[in-house]
């Protein structure tokens, strides 16, 4: 599949207002346990005039995903459309992926008296996991599989200001380009986070 039709996330920092609609929708849809944040909204310089920015962050489903490269048990796999998924039944919870990830996406449940890590959990772009599509077990372990039903990931669907976009890279780029041109003050070459996630091409 070509680079242009792979799926990407983009959060427009000019539009994100930290309403947390995305993170709440994600947690509700996938019934995440407390403490697991597949998606978070980060605000920098809160309350400082002219310096405050918010951005919604989750797994960016990178090209040459660093998590996949460092995983000692090789539990990651990358779909043809670019979605990075992993097999939670293979994962040993070592957290190497967390060190490799530039976005802090991998989440680990803390279990037992000594807070031992369980299998890693992260954003699936609402595409489930390696189990039978839309099976009860898939839903239980990985959450909803909306992509298989042709539905947009729940975070972007819920976004109140349409700051958070997801879709074919070409479509997302077209919307981004339109907004940048419409803004008419300086043309950014690439969204924040993209050079890190998808390289410079």
């Amino acid at each position: 599949m070509s680079e242009m039709s792979r799926l990407k996330f983009y959060c427009d920092e000019g539009r994100c207002i930290e309403c947390d609609g995305c993170s709440i929708a994600c947690a509700e849809a996938h019934e995440l346990p407390a403490g697991i944040n597949r998606r978070k909204v980060i605000t920098l310089n809160e309350g400082k005039e002219g310096l405050e920015y918010s951005l919604s962050i989750a797994c960016m489903h990178c090209n040459d995903a660093p998590c996949e490269q460092v995983c000692p048990v090789d539990c990651f796999y990358i779909r043809e459309d670019g979605i990075v998924l992993h097999d939670k039944e293979t994962c040993i919870g070592c957290a190497y992926c967390l060190y490799a990830c530039p976005f802090g996406a991998p989440q680990f449940p803390r279990e037992g008296a000594f807070g031992a890590k369980g299998a890693m959990d992260k954003c699936t772009m609402c595409a489930g996991g390696p189990l039978e599509t839309n099976s009860e077990k898939e839903r239980h372990i990985y959450g909803q599989n909306r992509i298989s039903e042709g539905r947009v990931p729940v975070c972007a669907a819920m976004c109140s200001t349409k700051a958070l976009l997801v879709g074919d890279a070409q479509e997302v780029s077209a919307i981004y380009r339109e907004r940048v041109l419409a803004r008419g003050h300086g043309v950014q070459t690439s969204p924040m986070t993209w050079s890190r996630a998808y390289g410079t091409k």
């Binding site: 000019g14 539009r15 207002i17 309403c19 109140s160 349409k162 907004r179």
Partner: peptide
């Protein structure tokens, strides 16, 4: 409105984006 009318606030942001 960004806190109390988040969906409605999109119209403010569009005014800024499209109309400067």
């Amino acid at each position: 409105p960004a806190v109390n009318h988040p969906v409605g606030f999109a119209h403010f942001l569009k005014a800024k984006e499209r109309n400067n």
